[in-house]
Nucleic acid binder design. Sequence first.
DNA 1: TCTGGGGTCCTAGGACCC
DNA 2: TCTGGGGTCCTAGGACCC
Length: 425
Amino acid sequence: MSPSVFALVDCNNFYASCEKLFRPDLADKPVVVLSNNDGCIIARSKEAKKLGIKMGLPVFQVRDLLQQHQIVAFSSNYALYADMSQRVMSTLENLAPRVEVYSIDEAFLDLTGLAYCEGLTEFGQHVRRTVQKDIGITVCVGIAPSKTLAKLANHAAKTWAKTGGVVDLTGKERQRKLLALLPVNEVWGIGGKLTKRLEQLGITTALQLADAAPDYIRQHFSVVVERTVRELNGESCIALEDVAPTKKQIISSRAFGERISDKQQMREAISEYISRACKKLRQEQQQAKYLTVFLRTSPFSDKDAPYSASKSCELESPSSDTRVFLASAMRLLDSLWLNGYRYAKAGVMLADFYDPGVHQPGLFDEPIVQKESDQKLMQLMDTLNSKHGKTLWFASQGTTQQWGMKRELLSPAYTTNWKELPLVK
DNA sequence: TCTGGGGTCCTAGGACCC
DNA sequence: TCTGGGGTCCTAGGACCC
């Protein structure tokens, strides 16, 4: 068997690039994309990065900077990004036999065996050119014998322009040279907390982590970090998953555009989240048995009294019927709700999934018969809503949704709505 | 005044069983 | 007077990712 070779393909400044694609007038201008409710900076074009706009900063803290440099800000437009992502991914699927879509802007490719056919760097360049030409999005490619090293190779390709956007890290010598240059927190799987603890042991560079004894790391940390050490040494421990595993939970939660202090409004919000979560559940063709509802005040405010709580319940049998979850969620909300707080965020979580029809009821439980008409009703609702936009919903979701998300800088739905198709004049 | 959303995996510790 | 030990299951919380 030939040794594994992975490529990590990662889109540059993905959300910002998507916005620019439809606004050629902004080609060389600094652009940022904001989180839901226009709260934080979540993507920056390279011009914006150069101006010192940091990732994750609250918008109100950089408002002056945005204005001063005439940085163009967009509300996040996930419909657009998801659509562009799909186009990039299907292009990649035409270029490699096995592809794992790792996130909205990244994919791992399996290049095992390819090493003997053609130069890996040349292949990387081919990927870059093709995605650029077909979709208009710039990507960088990192190639290595393990996913963790491929991540680092990609980081190098992004950081140093002279690499031409492609780094082949299959050679041991180049691996060690790069690892020595990178701080340990650049390694995939090593976050803030682990970085601190590693530093206490005198491990500050990626190379020092690679050279640590796996047993020693296992003792002081966990099997996860041990695996990272092995991966850094070129031993592939994390396989390519080209078939997406079924989900284990579905979350729908959102910070409110305006604080909620009124219970009726909170009922609307929870109803809305339940409805979204159940729709996702049906799309996954799953049923769930476990439901959690949570709500909280803002963790940043020092004026408001803090309150954060969650409660869960188990259904008698798995379901994907919005009405069943709505009823339980309202009961949970009743037991969570306290008057007198300014709630900033709430959400729901579905878990404990079953394929329809395989759940084993308890010996003394009434056999549960799922009525066909109930499933048809849900199906009808999903079909109507996906065809004609949101036309059918539950009264409890409310009609005005005053608490709804703020998106004041939203770009048009260029690719997913005929009415908003860009015009060439 | 204003600070995102959606996931996964692992571990520790308690409950319970024999 | 002396009061075990090992296994499993579950959950909460922590850490990480994009």
